[in-house]
């Protein structure tokens, strides 16, 4: 049984059909990278998976549970699906530490002490123990994003969804965030929408190329980069490699 199974997901906004039948699956601890041009439905797909935008049609199964079932308690399921945003979306009125601990306290029912102890551990994991007492406005973009990752990690998710986690960062700050993500590989499953081809090539177990609301092709990085089956995949990867560098 796969940890995550996405079955024939459709999603429209008004007359515009953004997702036209997406199916794929992921195993425990696997890293999958979704690539594709802008406006192709990559972010929408992530938002369908954690039901921020429930799909119109299709099913999503996580750990053997159909989470698109309307009877399910979605707040409970969301604890198992971490989400990291392009724009960080940290809670501005809380310190880095509280950003990470508040979910443990309010959602998981930890005591404040226990929640903060675990939050410190998570901040250590992303290399920000010394910034625990700082507020988001006092952190750099890369630090903010690492707090965002720690916030997702703290809930002990089975999978974390990353929505272009480095797209809003200055180039010199991207590396820190990618290093943290790399360190999580095989410890927690990651589904990453990104244009960072180096990360895709070196860290991903599976690359999914999306265009026009469907999956054009998917496979392990080696196959996708060296022997893509579809001409469109080859063309896209060629173009993006000149843009973002080969590694």
């Amino acid at each position: 049984m796969h940890m995550l199974e996405v079955k024939d997901i459709h999603k429209s906004y008004g007359d515009l059909e953004v997702l036209k039948g997406i199916s794929f699956s992921m195993n425990k601890g696997e890293t999958a990278v979704i690539i594709g041009t802008s406006g192709t439905g990559k972010s929408t797909l992530l938002r369908c998976i954690n039901q921020l935008h429930p799909p119109d049609k299709g099913e999503i199964w996580l750990d053997g549970v159909n989470i698109t079932d309307p009877k399910i308690d979605i707040n409970k399921i969301r604890q198992k699906i971490g989400f990291v945003f392009q724009e960080f979306n940290l809670f501005n009125h809380l310190t880095a530490l509280r950003n990470v601990s508040i979910g443990l306290e309010k959602v998981k029912g930890f005591t404040k002490e226990k929640a903060e102890k675990k939050a410190i551990e998570e901040l250590k994991r992303v290399g920000l123990k010394d910034q625990a007492k700082q507020y988001p406005a006092q952190l750099s973009g890369g630090q903010k994003q690492r707090v965002g990752i720690a916030r997702a990690l703290a809930m002990d998710p089975t999978i974390i969804l990353f929505d272009e986690p480095t797209s809003a960062l200055d180039p010199e700050l991207i590396g820190d965030v990618l290093d943290v993500m790399k360190s999580l590989a095989h410890k927690v499953a990651m589904l990453v929408v990104t244009h960072e081809m180096g990360f895709a090539r070196n860290v991903a177990d599976e690359i999914i190329f999306m265009e026009g609301g469907v999956i054009v092709e998917s496979g392990p990085p080696k196959q996708m980069f060296q022997n893509p089956k579809k001409a469109r995949t080859k063309e896209f990867l060629g173009r993006i490699s000149t843009l973002y560098g080969k590694d």
């Binding site: 604890q79 971490g82 809670f91 959602v107 997702a152």
Partner: peptide, 19 residues
């Protein structure tokens, strides 16, 4: 005036709307 992303982020860690 509060960026709506913060509300979305709260929902993604499992908070209810009220929380």
């Amino acid at each position: 005036s509060i960026p709506s992303g913060q509300m979305v982020a709260a929902r993604t860690i499992g908070m209810t709307k009220l929380q």
